[in-house]
């Protein structure tokens, strides 16, 4: 019935398992309606900004985008919060672990599903916002920094998912990693940036500071949601992306290592 055993180190099999886990996790996100809810928010939230009548398309976009990071964080917390600890907490690991695949493949697939879910949210948000800009200001007014902004939002998505994913590998309960992840990215790190800024240290290495690129790319020193920012410093595109990519990679690798060593005892 099966095609027989595969060698112990089999990268092809590992990739295939990762893909299967990715698809399975995505199905779960769809069935649990979470993806639907977050996607609905990505449609509705930008529409709220119709209320702000601002002069230029760029300012409009920047205002609207200043809220996107909240949605990214919510999505990351929701989709990655239970990715690792949920498997132990809910004991579904008793079903998935005693199968011929590596735990790292299972977790990598779940990570990718959380990333994709978050990217879908981001894409919807930009699409809606673009339609609004076209409607309100016309095609000639589309802000020039939008591509950079989108790239920043995409990379921030992967880094936010990584941060929550790492928490999910360390903490015992899904609800803790979801909440701690949410608070870390929306409160703790922004407050830290603010403190550093007031000490005249540029918080270039803090991921949420780099995430300001999302709106700063459209309007320099634009708007940001969350605890006050004095606008003394501004992230640069290249280094900002590099910082976010570092969080992405470190969080992912750390989580997969810790998660697959986690004991079923």
């Amino acid at each position: 019935m099966t095609t027989g055993p595969s060698p112990r180190y089999d990268a092809k099999a590992d990739l295939q398992d990762t893909y299967l886990s990715f698809r399975f996790e995505l199905t779960k996100h769809l069935r649990r309606r979470r993806l639907l809810i977050v996607a609905a928010l990505a449609v509705l939230v930008p529409l709220l900004f119709y209320a702000f009548s601002v002069e230029t398309a760029a300012t409009f976009a920047a205002v609207s985008l200043s809220f996107l990071s909240v949605l990214i964080v919510a999505s990351a917390a929701l989709f990655a919060g239970d990715a690792i600890c949920g498997e132990f907490e809910k004991k579904t690991a008793l079903l998935s672990f005693p199968t011929p695949q590596r735990r790292t493949s299972i977790f990598a697939g779940k990570y990718m599903a959380a990333v994709l879910a978050t990217l879908i949210v981001v894409a919807i948000y930009y699409a809606i916002m673009m339609l609004q800009v076209l409607h309100l200001y016309g095609a000639g007014e589309v802000p020039s920094g939008l591509a950079q902004s989108f790239a920043s939002a995409a990379v921030y998505s992967t880094s936010a998912v990584s941060v929550v994913f790492l928490l999910s590998s360390v903490l015992q309960r899904s609800i803790s990693s979801t909440i701690v992840g949410f608070l870390t990215l929306l409160m703790v790190l922004p407050v830290l940036s603010t403190i550093l800024t007031s000490l005249e240290v540029e918080p270039w290495f803090i991921v949420t500071y780099a995430a300001d690129l999302i709106s700063d790319s459209v309007v320099a020193n634009g708007f940001s949601f969350g605890p006050g920012r004095f606008g003394v410093y501004q992230p640069d595109f290249g280094p900002g992306i590099a910082v976010m990519l570092t969080y992405t990679l470190a969080g992912f690798l750390g989580a997969v290592c810790i998660g697959s060593r986690k004991s079923m005892e």
Partner: peptide
């Protein structure tokens, strides 16, 4: 007693 994928 394994956990179940309740939504599936």
């Amino acid at each position: 007693v394994p956990g179940m994928y309740e939504y599936l």
